[in-house]
Amino acid sequence: MDAIQAEFDRLNNKSNLSKAVTDIDKCIALLENARNQIAQEPSSRGMTLARLQQSVNSQLEKVGGDHKEVYTALNRYGKALDKKFKAASAFSSSDYDALSNEGHLINRAIAMHLIREGQFTVASKFVQEAGDLDIPPELQDEFVEMYQILKAMKEQRDLDPAIAWARQKARQLEQRGSNLEFDLCKLQFVAMFVNGMDGRKHAMEYARREFGRFQDKHLKEVQMLMTAFLYTDNLQQSPYGRPFLEPEKTWEDVAHSFTKEFCSLLGLSAQSPLYLAATAGAIALPTLLKMTSIMKEKKTEWTSQNELPVEIPLPPSYHFHSIFVCPVSKDQTTEENPPMMLPCGHVIALESLQRLARSGSAPSLKCPYCPKESTLAQAKQVII
């Protein structure tokens, strides 16, 4: 990667481009001066144009030299990339053909990504040119509403549209166990409270009007909010002053929570799957290219179809479900090979448990991690 970085630094060097811009600016200045001279003294037109031609040609030669250095660096950078990632050629043409056969799904993922990101004009044009992608037309209307609410929340600090939406969807949110409506009302209270004496008065009226219906589920939090009136002069001393002292973070958290719940009610994840897949692929690509190159040299192939040959470390935000790796076989458990807990509390995969049961002559089997014995029927499946 050092060679690529060196060529990239050479390509990214602003001195050559700056020189070219400076030389072009000089050409423009020469032309403007010549125009002014001709306007003031029309009789000197021939002499001025002769001098201008020589000066402009000289400046253009400098610009050409500057551009030549940039083009040379760009050419070297491309060659360095081809040399470094030549292992990519290990992928056969059939792999690319298989990918092209999934063009419909890829186009749909791109269109969904554009809609989710609020690029509605681009998404409409893309869908029009890509053909029928089976995307409900009302889905874009839903995301238009979401972005309108988010814009009011982030730019205008207006929570009324979000609260109205949460109350409209109260039953669905309650079924999900969501606290979105209360979080929005709580933030509305905080926004009023920090707005001076009149704000605290409005906050008290708002709390009396709105917080009553949240008492069954959020009584403790309501009580903590109301203690702010005891620390009006110095909220820093309040043990419950965090929502009032970190307003920006609170707004960001509530906006993220709103986006998550809005997408969940549409049956979608809070983040674009295309973005997540592309980012995870970019993280994994160097390792996979290296593995491909090694296997090509050793003339070996991947033996697993549903998992990668090496572990790819991804950020915690990319861990979407819990996994369990059997401590005996070192294999990750699946639906066909679930984790099983023995009476002693140790957990191993079902296949490992069955092998232990078959290996002994007695009806009982010994736990591989403690002296306790049990039977295969006593093991219970663990749901993670």
Rank of each mutant, 00 (worst) to 15 (best):
A90G: 09
L245M: 12
D66F: 09
Y96F: 15
A80G: 04
K299A: 06
G199Q: 03
I135R: 04
E221C: 07
L314T: 07
G131I: 01
L31I: 10
T334I: 02
K83G: 13
A88E: 15
E155L: 10
L114G: 02
P343I: 06
K372V: 11
N179V: 03
A280W: 12
A357R: 01
H319A: 15
K79D: 13
L350C: 08
I106H: 13
A191H: 08
E117P: 06
W165T: 00
E41K: 09
P136C: 04
K220Y: 14
I115V: 14
D82W: 04
Y147D: 01
D183R: 02
W302Y: 11
L365V: 13
E252Q: 10
E261C: 06
Q5W: 10
R45Y: 07
E41R: 12
L49F: 02
N179A: 09
I24T: 06
K84R: 11
E117A: 11
A377Q: 13
A278W: 12
V122C: 00
K298L: 13
Y275I: 14
D132W: 00
R358C: 12
A162M: 00
H321T: 07
S18R: 06
K220S: 14
E7K: 06
K217R: 14
A228C: 11
R45Q: 09
L99V: 15
K299R: 09
K14S: 08
E145T: 08
A166C: 04
Q237D: 15
K169M: 15
K26F: 10
A73C: 00
T292Y: 07
L17T: 00
K290W: 10
A111K: 05
D25S: 08
R355A: 15
E336Q: 14
E41T: 11
S93P: 04
D216S: 15
T300A: 13
S359Y: 11
